[in-house]
Nucleic acid binder design. Structure first.
Length: 178
DNA sequence: GCAGTGATCATA
DNA sequence: ATGATCACTGCC
């Protein structure tokens, strides 16, 4: 479902990635697809905090692949993983700081690879801003997710990251309990 | 439980 | 130029 909401401005993303991640839960991920505009509530995200975060691509310096992570808040960072899955991230914080939030689930789409596949997202979005003109953006439909519905766990698939493996930087929205 | 898949990056 | 790696998924 999903009626129209207020487009999230770039300023929303100009904060530490873990705060952005927490506040993205319940917002609408909106994409213009071949079959029309799709609005899906964000259900699962992960924060990548910057160059000191050993799980963060930016922690080993800027490369051609991760350059957009060092850009301004509110732009998309999209890269290919395992040769077949596109990962969708929204850049956070100040330019020069490599931080972002990975979108792992929204609406019925679970898993970061299925999410991009379902929305038809690939690297052509990399570096674009999260505004309607780019085809993919966020809206606030006025939904507030209470803290008791939010679970925090370690991030998935980052076993190489030393002491950062265990940091609870994955945020999942759980269904309301009785 | 593990193979598929190919761009990317460090090493040379 | 070459090889290891990889913020995953689907089928065994």
């Amino acid at each position: 479902m999903g009626s129209e909401g207020v487009v999230l401005p770039a300023a929303f993303f100009d904060r530490p990635a873990d705060r952005v991640a927490r506040h993205l839960l319940g917002k609408q991920l909106v994409a213009r697809t071949a079959s029309g505009v799709v609005r899906l509530p964000v259900t699962e995200v992960e924060a990548y905090l910057g160059s000191h975060d050993l799980a963060c691509h930016g922690s080993r310096g800027m490369t051609k692949r991760n350059a957009t992570m060092f850009g301004p808040a509110g732009s998309w960072y999209v890269y290919l993983c395992y040769g077949m899955h596109w990962m969708l991230n929204i850049v956070t914080g100040k330019p020069g700081v490599p931080a972002a939030v990975l979108l792992r689930g929204a609406g019925h789409l679970t898993g970061p690879g299925r999410l991009t596949k379902g929305l038809g997202i690939d690297r052509t979005l990399d570096g674009a801003e999260a505004v309607p003109a780019s085809g993919v953006w966020f809206e606030d439909a006025g939904v507030r997710v209470p803290p008791r519905q939010i679970a925090r766990t370690p991030r998935i698939g980052i076993g190489y990251a030393g002491e950062w493996v265990e940091k609870p930087l994955r945020f999942v929205r759980e269904s309301a309990s009785p």
